[in-house]
Nucleic acid binder design. Structure first.
Length: 582
RNA sequence: GUCCCAGUAGCUCAGCUGGAUAGAGCAAUGCCCUUCUAAGGCAUCGGUCGGGGGUUCGAAUCUCUCCUGGGACACCA
């Protein structure tokens, strides 16, 4: 259990001993640092319940706190605020416990399994800016959950069964009508060689999509093509497999650049195999109705305060809608993984869709009462004009070109003596750090403005700043090793600078827990900045290696090492790699 | 028409399970380099928390209402 949580627990017992009944004491980071490191506001709450003077209660609590060696400078101020600081001895002790095992200051969650759905990449379509946030936030939440002891599976949930594929197939047919995949009389073996490359796919989809938007006949053909492969037409399935292979490896390559990994590479097509079983199950439950030639599920409830449209189960042309696929996917996941929770990371605009799917899942008992379905929306990325982010000529910005842009921008700022392949590799790491940190620092649901110049700046709250600072810690410790200076434990609190670092380190657990509970790693992103900048302040005020007192020097090195390891752990949670120099 | 989200410093964003004097980065101004990566650090300047009412000892935070902006409302995903 973390230090703060332990203190809270002990304090709760003390307060109970005073005769006050309360479920929880909260020791929060002080917003009056001049009065103490932490504050407790519970006295005012108790005063209300017990109809007493808050100052009187606060003073009773303070008497208890004063006998505790872990606290110093305990005082009451204002309306009944209790302020306190941690003693130097206790801080040193905590630091060494963290050096021994950082889990001495992390609060794990109860054991459970969560499936995270943060992919949604469309096969045959380029990954674009819209996929950046789901990848970054989803991956970070997964890593955070793992850090807190939760078992997770991330599912790429590829968009591999919808109309985009039909469009691509149709456009390919228009261009190369003689391919055997389109000939229903073809009985031979289909070629092993793929008829499409990724470059071709990247051209086919936008072209087909543009045509379909203005040409209703073309759109109708696309619908037919989609229905045909969804009915497992032999030739089209052979083609589908080729498209999948080509597209999937490209999608993987780009997710790799973002340090985004999936344990499950399923897609809508996998869920689609469960659709017939799903529909007949739902029919047996008497939940399916006919409406305008389609099969639907009514989702209205008596106590609704707003309208909920029905879920479209089977379209009038007999194909499944994406609501059905998502429902089938829950069916599939329950069957294969039996998770405690499923988290859906998507753009906030899909809120209604998931409300419908979740309702249908609960109503039909596909999701038991124990299964928690959670929609975790995020905001959109806008350009400098405040409108959805586009390329200069107004097109959709692909994820790849965005990463290239960041890499190019960061490359300019790397040390000139780093050259060749190494330079390229470091530029990539710094570029990804710039993009990822900027994406994770705003609260999850906030829409934010993408400004690559700002994000790649080495000054300020940016990824490159964090990397630079972390590298400087590495460098310092390497110098110490070269000079054969030994360091193991933190021995003392010397000044306000190292003290401030220690207080920040104590707060690690709080920040991790907060982020997990809000499903937004912005808290972690902010925390790592605070910790790092407290270290930088220390660094500029104290010459570690030149310190004459060898005990103090090794204590500082041990602290540096602890900050470094904490930073690396947190960067890893955010999905950011740190080079050894830049 | 119904519903959802947002409006906080010149700019970009935190803070929102009610708590003290509303924070950070950038920009602006002024300091600190024979220095462990100065790609750093320090200081100053900067706010009717969209407007108005309500609840409360206490409201950026809860509530009502209005204004502004964005978004979602079955046969795209």
């Amino acid at each position: 259990m973390s230090f703060i949580k332990t203190l809270e627990k002990d304090l709760k017992e003390s307060i109970n001993e005073l005769g006050y009944d309360l479920d929880k004491v909260t020791i929060s980071i002080s917003n009056r640092p001049d009065l103490g490191n932490y504050q407790i506001n519970d006295a005012m709450r108790l005063a209300k319940v017990y109809k007493k003077n808050p100052n009187e209660i606060a003073n009773n609590i303070v008497d208890k706190l004063n006998s505790d060696k872990r606290f110093v400078n305990v005082n009451v101020a204002g309306a009944g605020f209790i302020n306190l600081s941690l003693s130097d001895e206790y801080l040193v002790q905590c630091m060494n416990k963290m050096i021994e095992d950082v889990y001495n200051n992390i609060d794990c969650q109860r054991e459970k399994t969560i499936i995270l759905d943060y992919g949604g990449a469309n096969v045959a379509k380029a990954l674009h800016v819209g996929h950046l946030r789901s990848a970054n936030i989803g991956e970070a939440l997964k890593r955070l959950a793992n850090t807190l002891g939760v078992k997770t599976y991330a599912d790429a949930h590829l968009g591999d069964w919808g109309r985009p594929i039909g469009l691509v197939m149709l456009e390919l047919k228009k261009r190369k009508p003689n391919l055997p995949y389109f000939d229903s009389n073809f009985n031979g073996e289909y070629p092993k060689e793929s008829p499409v490359t990724n470059e071709l796919l990247m051209d086919l989809y936008p072209c087909a999509s543009a045509k379909a938007n203005i040409d209703e006949d073309y759109m109708e053909e696309a619908r037919e093509m989609t229905a045909k492969f969804q009915n497992h037409d032999k030739g089209l399935m052979a083609l589908w497999n080729h498209i999948m292979d080509v597209s999937k490896s490209d999608i993987k390559r780009i997710y790799d650049r973002l340090n985004t990994t999936f344990e499950i590479w399923n897609g809508e097509s996998d869920a689609a195999t469960y659709v017939p079983e799903l529909v007949s199950y739902l029919e047996s439950q008497n939940l399916v109705k006919f409406s305008e030639g389609a099969k639907i599920i009514e989702l209205k409830e008596e106590d609704d305060d707003h309208e909920i449209p029905p879920l479209l189960l089977v379209k009038s042309n007999g194909t499944a809608s994406y609501q059905t696929t998502d429902l089938a996917c829950i069916f599939e996941r329950v069957k294969n993984y039996n998770p405690d929770e499923i988290w859906y990371l998507t753009d906030a605009r899909q809120a209604l869709h998931f409300e419908q799917v979740f309702r249908a899942a609960k109503k039909s008992k596909i999701a038991s009462d124990n299964l928690k379905l959670e929609f975790i929306p995020f905001g959109t990325i806008n350009g400098l004009d405040g409108k959805p982010f586009k390329t200069r000529d107004g097109g959709v910005m692909t994820l790849e070109s965005l990463l290239d842009l960041a890499k190019e921008e960061c490359e300019k700022k790397i040390l000139p003596n780093i050259v060749g392949e190494e330079r390229d590799k470091i530029a990539e790491m710094v570029g990804v750090a710039a993009v990822k940190y900027a994406d994770l620092i705003p609260y999850r649901t906030t829409d934010y403005i993408f400004d690559i110049n700002k994000f790649s700046d080495l000054e300020g709250k940016t990824g490159p700043y964090l990397l630079y600072s972390t590298i400087r810690m590495k460098s310092l410790l390497n110098k110490a090793k070269d000079a054969q200076i030994d360091y193991q434990l933190v021995k003392t609190v010397k000044n306000e600078y190292d003290r401030d670092i220690m207080i920040n380190l104590i707060n690690l657990a709080t920040s991790l827990t907060k982020s997990y509970e809000s499903r937004s790693v912005n808290e972690v992103a902010d925390y790592i900045y605070k910790l790092t900048s407290s270290y930088n302040k220390f660094y500029s005020e104290n010459r570690v290696l030149d310190e004459k007192d060898s005990d103090l020097r090794s204590s500082w090195l041990a602290l540096t090492n602890l900050v470094l390891n904490t930073n690396l752990m947190l960067l890893n949670i955010l999905g950011i790699n740190c080079p050894n120099k830049m």
